[in-house]
Every structure is written in C-alpha cells, then in structure tokens.
Amino acid sequence: LETFPLDVLVNTAAEDLPRGVDPSRKENYLSDEDFKAVFGMTRSAFANLPLWKQQNLKKEKGLF
C-alpha cells in the first residue's frame, strides 16, 4: 500500500485525496512512523480498539 505524508491526508476532502486513497481509511496510508506519531500507538494496538474509539481518534486527528 502506498503511503502519503500526513499533511496530504489530514483534513482533506475525499475529492482532494491522491488517486486510490480510500477516504474512510486514511490512516492506512500513513507510514508506520507517522501513524505512531499521530495516534501514539502501533497499528495493531489501534486495530484492537473498539470501532467507536478508532473513529473518535480519527476525528480528533483530522483523518475521518
């Protein structure tokens, strides 16, 4: 999966995202380093959170 810089994904409308980016899964296009910096946890820890908590975190970080 291709990764993009944080500033390309945060608070970006679906139509302005790079081609192929799923707007409902912007976090998947962050590098592992950016993911950890944004969410303060690994991808696996994030995946283990309840869906509502994942969505709330994504909203807080501008990735929803």
Rank of each mutant, 00 (worst) to 15 (best):
A14F: 09
K61N: 11
Y29K: 02
K36I: 15
L49H: 01
K59T: 09
R19P: 15
L17R: 02
M41R: 01
D32N: 08
A13V: 11
E2R: 08
L1D: 09
E27G: 02
T12I: 10
L17V: 06
D34G: 04
V8D: 08
N11V: 08
E27D: 04
G62D: 05
G62L: 05
V10K: 10
K53Y: 13
D32L: 07
R43F: 06
D7L: 10
T12L: 10
R25K: 14
F46I: 00
F4N: 03
L57F: 04
S44P: 08
F46C: 00
F64G: 15
T42E: 14
L30Q: 01
Q54K: 07
V21N: 02
L51N: 09
N48A: 14
P50T: 05
V21G: 03
K36R: 13
A13H: 10
L1T: 13
G40A: 08
G62F: 06
P18G: 05
D7E: 13
F46H: 00
V21M: 07
N48H: 11
S24V: 09
D22Y: 02
L51I: 12
F4H: 08
P23C: 07
L63G: 04
R43W: 05
Y29A: 05
N28E: 14
N28H: 11
L9M: 04
K59A: 10
D34K: 01
R25N: 09
A47E: 14
T3S: 10
G40Q: 11
L30K: 01
K26S: 04
N28W: 10
K53A: 13
E33M: 10
N56S: 14
L49V: 02
D34F: 02
K58V: 05
F64D: 15
F46N: 00
E33I: 12
L6W: 08
F4I: 09
R25S: 08
L9P: 02
A13P: 13
D34T: 07
M41G: 00
V38H: 05
N28D: 15
D7G: 10
L9Q: 02
A47G: 11
P50Y: 01
R19K: 15
S24I: 08
F35C: 00
K61A: 14
G20T: 10
K53F: 13
F35S: 00
E15A: 14
E2N: 10
L51H: 13
R43D: 01
F35D: 00
S24A: 14
E15R: 12
L49Y: 04
A14M: 11
L49N: 00
L51V: 12
N56F: 11
R25T: 07
N48G: 13
P5D: 07
Y29P: 01
L49K: 01
F46V: 00
N11K: 12
D22K: 15
E2Y: 06
D16T: 08
A47N: 12
A37Y: 12
L49A: 01
F46M: 01
L30F: 02
L57V: 05
D32M: 06
T42D: 15
P5C: 05
P18H: 03
Y29S: 07
Q54H: 00
T42S: 14
N48K: 14
Q55Y: 10
R43Q: 07
S44Y: 13
N56G: 10
D22V: 05
S44N: 12
P23Q: 08
E60G: 06
L17P: 03
S44G: 12
S24R: 13
Y29L: 04
T42P: 08
Q55G: 07
G62K: 05
L6Q: 03
L17C: 06
L63V: 04
K59S: 08
T12S: 12
A13N: 12
A47D: 09
N28Q: 15
M41Y: 05
V8L: 14
D22Q: 04
S31Q: 03
V8P: 02
F46A: 00
T3D: 04
K59N: 08
A47M: 13
M41P: 00
E60W: 07
P5Q: 04
K61Y: 08
E27S: 02
E27A: 03
S31R: 06
R43C: 05
D22N: 08
F39R: 00
K36T: 14
K36V: 14
L1A: 13
E27F: 02
V10P: 02
T42K: 06
A13E: 09
S24P: 03
E60Y: 06
G20Y: 11
K59I: 11
T3N: 08
Q54C: 01
P50N: 03
R43I: 05
S31V: 03
P50I: 01
A37W: 12
L49R: 00
L17T: 05
G62T: 01
L63N: 03
Q54Y: 00
